[in-house]
Structure formats: structure tokens, C-alpha cells
Design a binder for these strands. Structure first.
Length: 420
RNA sequence: GGAGGGAUCGCAUAGUGGUCGAGUGCGGCGGUUUCGAAAACCGCUAUAGAGAAUUUUCUUUAUCGUGAGUUCGAAUCUCACUCCCUCCGCCA
């Protein structure tokens, strides 16, 4: 939710920014409703003041005349209140459609083709044989089984087995070890979240709820990412300035319907309905989110440097940016079988966009301010595993385990168990 | 799944239709006292919005879990929902 005061002060800013995100909003209309709302609100308040005065004049013993007067005020008040309620609902509905404005350094662009490459780190390895894709490798190593998963659960599900599981747990542990050292608070959050929380987080706006699994019987939503249940930990809380920045590292399974992605990345486990993810969430002071954003990005880069996998960093352009984010950086890792970089992490600042609706604040002196919130991926499980398999594969079909993970897994190499 | 109890100001509690503009205690802040401190005493003690002024105030509205309702008038009565507690059943 945006700040309506800022909208009144600078409607053009919101208009331009929404357009850059390809979100159709009629700002002039919203301002009109707002004006009408305030007018009605004043009328209602005046009538309530009249009623309150009348009632206190009764001193518990109303005369018949006073009761008649009271009935009259009540009738007029009900009419005005009715009008006020409908205008207020419309105002809230319209306000909820306005996306978080983009930061000044975010490029205005139409879609992902205009995302900016900020830097490239590491050199793609040259293979003296034709590199296999992760699915072929995974099957011959007996660590990925999508065929059986399709029979049990459907397309875009997988079994991870043997060293595949150990790889995931090693990545998870590496991320937790690293982030706990940085002062992050470890958390295992719920994966089912109430509808009203999802609404307040802004994940159901702009048609984004198409990708959310719903448990209709209990009106609960399955999280698509753990920040959906980590961020609202601060709902209705007021932190002190000294507690900030407050950083969490969470681990959870994530669920995505992937509606509208039919035909994309159908091979293997790059795009699945269910995966595990280590996620970072930061709560910081107003105005400190830019610095925190760079920090989260630097940690994400570190995670791929530790694995020694080539990557580049993208700053996402306005047209490819979500409803909540004011800025987003993606890391794309080198995938030899596709001969290109593919997304492995994503970090966003949502500024105070979610804090307003969820009432998440901190005390600065004697002033209460809204928290700035950021999130970022440490490891979203399948994709780093894909990158490891493909980048570390050997001519004989085995895969060397990255040095940093060897101590967690207890071996240096995964060898084929099936004939390829 | 069944039965019952509960949610009031930072915390604890009082309040069963009108002087509730929410009492009391604790805590917190300021002051008196003191060489200083404690104690005692006195005063203050929330959030959000709108309007008017405009540098700091005034007026007003809302908020007793949330939302609706009854009433001239609701913390108080009715209904629904959310959450917490106790017991029974089931259960990793």
C-alpha cells in the first residue's frame, strides 16, 4: 500500500512509475475519490459531534424531546455513514491497485529484454566434450527422478535422491553457517499463510495470485517464498531503532503454480511447483534500504563465488519488476547446457510498501516510522544444484563436488550409477 | 472433532446500557525534597485520521480482539469471525 499523503503531494510521480511498470491506474480518479471521501468524512464527523453533545446533555435521563432529536440525528448520520462507507471501500480498492514506485536508478523498460547487466564474474568453462544437461546428468547419477514424480504428483515435480539430497542439505548448511556468522536470525516459518496476510503483503494484487496454491477448505495460501511468512512476523510490532537492522535467514519449501509458464523450461527441475529455498529478509530504517540492498546482493554474489560458478548481475527494468518491488537485482548463473546465464537469485527492496498495511514500525526518537523491508535469495535449491551439476561435470559423466561443499557431504565426487 | 472459559491504556486488573471524556495498582517520564541517592509526595502517561491556524497549538472524530447489528445512547446487549486458555477425543 502506498502513502496517500505522498500521492496527494506528487500524483505525477505515481502516474509515471505505474506506467513504467505497465500497471493501468487512473490517478486522477483516485484523487477525486479521496476528495469525496474527505468531504463525506467531515460531514459524518460533524454529525457524530452533534450526537455526542446531545447524548451527554441527557445525563442519563433523556426527555422525550431529546429522544426525538436523537432519532433525527441518527437518521441523518446513517445516511451519511452509508455513503462514506461505499466511498471508503472504493478508495481502498483503488489505492491497493497502485504499485510501489520504482527507484530513480531503475531503468524504464518494457520487459526482461531491457534488464541491465551490471557486472559479470568468472569465465564460463570450456569443455573438451559436449556437456550434458542437468537432467541427463541427474538421471545417470541417480539423484533426479522426474519420471516417477510425474506419475505420483504430475508435471513439474521431482524426486531428489542420494547425493542430490546431500547437495541440497550442504547448500542449506553453508548458507545458514555463513549468514548466522553475519548476525542473521535463523527461522523455520510456516508455509501456509492466511488470505488477509497475503492481501496485505500485496501478493494478491495485479493478478499475481494466479501463481499461488490455495487451500480452499481453510482459506489458506501456500507460500511461494518464505518471505511471505517471515515479513509478517513484524505485523503490528514496533521495534526500537537499536534493534535495526533486524535480519532473518529462513528455510522453507516454496510452492508455485507456474500458471502461464506452460512450455517454458519443461525439461528437468529448473522450473518446478515445489522447491526448497534459503531466504534472507531484512528490516531496516527508513532510507537505509539502498545500502541494505547492496549488502544482500553482495551476500548473494558471495554464495556463487564460494561455489566458483560464473554469474552475472542484472538490475531488473521497470517493465519486468513486480508490484511490490522498488528495485530488484537478479543473479544469473552460467548454465553450460543452455550456453547462457539463468536466474538463480533475486533480491528486492519493497521499501515501506508492506509495512503500511501490516503496521510494522520502529521508534526513532519519539517518532514512529514504517520499517523498510528487503528480501533476497541465498540458495533456491534446485537451480544451484543444476549449476553445480552442469559446471562441474567431467568427461566420464561424474560430477566433482565444489570444494566448499565437500566437508558437508564427505566425498569429492558423484559417480554415475546408471549407464548413460 | 466435542464441551467450557476468556481477549479492557506498556503490564496487571476494575468496570453487566447513560456523570466511562475508561477507575486503580505497577512500570515509565517530569517535578518537590536531598550534598547525592532511595523513599515519600505532586503532576503527566496511547495510537490514527480530518479541519483550522501555523511553528507549535486549538477543535473534532475513531479506537476496550475484528466486523456487523440493536439503541436517543454500547467496553457493557445480539450475531459472525479471529486469537488465547482448560478439559475430552484423535494424532507425528
Amino acid at each position: 500500500m502506498i502513502d496517500i499523503k505522498l500521492l496527494r503531494e506528487n500524483p505525477k510521480h505515481f502516474e509515471k512509475s505505474s506506467k513504467a511498470k505497465h500497471v493501468a491506474v487512473d490517478i486522477a480518479h483516485v484523487l477525486e475519490i479521496d476528495k469525496e471521501f474527505r468531504k463525506l468524512s467531515q460531514a459524518v464527523q460533524a454529525l457524530r459531534a452533534e450526537r455526542n453533545m446531545l447524548v451527554s446533555a441527557m445525563k442519563g435521563k433523556p426527555t422525550p424531546e431529546q429522544i426525538e432529536k436523537g432519532k433525527d440525528v441518527k437518521e441523518r448520520l446513517e445516511k451519511e455513514e452509508h455513503a462514506l462507507t461505499s466511498v471508503e471501500e472504493e478508495l481502498q480498492r483503488e489505492l491497493a491497485k497502485i504499485p510501489n514506485p520504482i527507484k530513480p536508478d531503475v531503468k524504464v523498460g518494457k520487459d526482461e529484454s531491457e534488464n541491465e547487466v551490471l557486472k559479470t564474474v568468472g569465465k564460463p568453462k570450456k569443455f573438451d566434450f559436449t556437456p550434458k544437461d542437468h537432467l541427463a546428468l541427474g538421471e545417470s547419477l541417480d539423484i533426479i527422478d522426474t519420471t516417477t514424480a510425474a506419475e505420483v504428483s504430475g508435471a513439474r515435480f521431482t524426486y531428489l535422491k542420494n547425493e542430490g539430497v546431500l547437495l541440497e542439505f550442504a547448500l542449506k548448511q553453508l548458507a545458514f553457517d555463513t549468514l548466522i556468522k553475519e548476525g542473521f536470525i535463523p527461522v523455520l516459518p510456516p508455509v501456509l499463510v492466511r488470505k488477509d496476510i497475503m492481501d496485505e503483503l500485496g501478493y494478491t494484487a495485479m493478478g499475481e495470485d494466479e501463481n499461488i496454491y490455495k487451500v480452499a477448505q481453510d482459506d489458506l495460501y501456500l507460500v511461494g517464498t518464505s518471505e511471505q511468512s517471515i515479513v509478517p512476523m513484524m505485523k503490528n510490532k514496533t521495534l526500537t531503532k537499536e534493534e535495526l537492522p533486524k535480519r532473518y535467514v529462513g528455510f522453507s519449501t516454496c510452492f508455485r503454480r507456474e500458471a502461464g509458464s506452460y512450455g517454458k523450461d519443461t525439461k528437468g527441475i529448473f522450473r518446478v511447483h515445489q522447491f526448497d529455498k534459503v531466504e534472507m529478509v531484512s528490516f531496516v530504517e527508513q532510507g537505509k534500504d539502498d545500502k541494505e540492498h547492496e549488502y544482500l546482493l553482495s551476500l548473494e554474489e558471495k554464495f556463487f563465488q564460494l561455489l566458483d560458478i560464473p554469474y552475472h548481475v542484472l538490475r531488473i527494468c521497470s517493465g519486468d519488476l513486480g508490484f511490490n518491488a522498488a528495485r530488484k537485482y537478479d543473479i544469473e548463473a552460467w548454465m553450460p547446457s543452455q550456453n547462457t546465464y539463468r536466474e538463480v537469485t533475486s533480491t528486492s527492496t519493497v521499501t515501506d510498501f508492506q509495512s503500511r498495511g501490516l503496521n510494522m514500525r520502529y521508534l526513532d526518537g519519539d517518532e514512529k516510522k514504517f520499517l523498510n523491508v528487503l528480501n533476497g535469495t541465498a540458495y533456491s535449491m534446485n537451480r544451484p544444484i543444476i549449476a553445480i551439476l552442469e559446471n562441474y561435470q567431467q568427461a566420464d559423466g561424474s560430477v566433482i563436488i565444489p570444494k566448499i561443499l565437500q566437508k558437508y557431504i564427505g566425498k569429492e565426487k558423484i559417480s554415475p550409477k546408471k549407464k548413460s
